[in-house]
Design a protein around this nucleic acid. Structure first.
Lengths: 196, 196
DNA sequence: TTTTTCTACTAACGATTGTTTGTGGATGTA
DNA sequence: TACATCCACAAACAATCGTTAGTAGAAAAA
């Protein structure tokens, strides 16, 4: 058991450093020798811990995807108006990202370098997640909470654009903590959708 | 003269194909042999038209930057309320992107692969552009057009996140034309900022 | 003790990278 | 005709890529 933990621990170190590197230079421009140097070892030594470069990317992307999914599922259980459900979905999404901003940036920007069939799987997860947010918005339009004048695809894509770029500019040491950030972002986006 | 046009024409073909390739695979993962193949020539032949791979990226990034700057300068001349100025700035930004969605995507996602000192120059142009939008928002807060409860950095970054991801999902053959898209996006974002 | 697990090394592989050199046909201009 | 420009080629360059093979010390488990 402790072996497994120690193993995971070192492997985890490799993956986390890789996340930083992938975020900074991009997956394709980041070499295994770069990664090894950051860890103070030789490139070949990395392969004692991971099977391939892409395995690292897969692990980062699909772990984040699972977190997002889990967060949204809890929100969907709630029996609240669509506007509040959307708001809670946004806050949940922000909090998942805030827990690991580095992995979030990789998830968002580097997933396209996954090879098949992983890329297809990833994109299916993603379209499913987006569609579930779209459903919440459509519910809100139906109940009259949201404007019916705005294109729904536009609305949901604008929402995700705002959310997904957050890891690129948010500074966790800044004056806004993740909770307040989620609140303000949700307020800004939801009130932009709400009927006047 | 006609020589110059023919020359520019072929060089332009190379750059535009490169933009498509860079958008699809990312700058680092796109090889000059890939690009040559798309054009039906050998990789070495590319160097009859361009000096280096990065020269293409520079050309794409800085040409777009100039377009954005030009658009914003016209908006800044207008003597209108801040909310309308912001709205027009958004519409202008969208229209510049819509004119070349491929180059816009490269501008947004691949600029980080510029080497120094070009990267520094690019980032300075960009922060300047963002700050000028921030000024418009601050003016609006001062005149009471916009809420003063929202963090201004958050507001402006959310704005740009929404705008900058548009090339990733917008389909020019869709039902929404660029003009209507700009209108709706501006409406959605500005009314989210406006006092109730 | 013996055995296993973890972590790292050196050396090297075949493939691919951006780019340079030198060449030459085709086209238009003087 | 003679010259210049454009555009493409084949061949090759050093550098770097992800990865494998084989080895070994150190620590933990049996």
């Amino acid at each position: 058991m402790s072996d497994a933990i120690a193993n995971l621990s070192r492997k985890e170190q490799v993956i986390r450093k890789a996340a930083e590197l992938f975020k900074d230079k991009g997956y394709a421009a980041a070499s295994m020798r770069d990664l090894a140097q950051l860890l103070g070892i030789e490139a070949a030594s990395l392969y004692s811990h991971i099977k391939s470069k892409e395995e690292i990317l897969r692990s980062l992307c699909f772990d984040m995807a699972a977190e997002f999914r889990k967060s949204l599922e809890e929100v969907e259980k709630q029996h609240v108006p669509a506007s509040e459900k959307l708001r809670n979905g946004i806050i949940g999404h922000i909090q998942v990202m805030a827990k690991d901003l580095t992995a979030s940036a990789v998830f968002m920007n580097e997933h396209r370098h996954l090879s098949e069939p992983y890329l297809r799987d990833f994109l299916l997860l993603r379209i499913n997640y987006i569609n579930r947010f779209k459903t919440i918005i459509e519910d809100g339009v139906r109940t009259g909470e949201f404007k019916n004048t705005i294109d729904k695809k536009l609305a949901v894509m604008t929402l995700f654009s705002s959310l997904n770029w957050m890891p690129m500019w948010y500074d966790p040491d800044s004056s806004i903590d993740p909770q307040a950030l989620g609140d303000q972002l949700a307020d800004m986006l939801v009130n932009g959708l709400k009927k006047a």
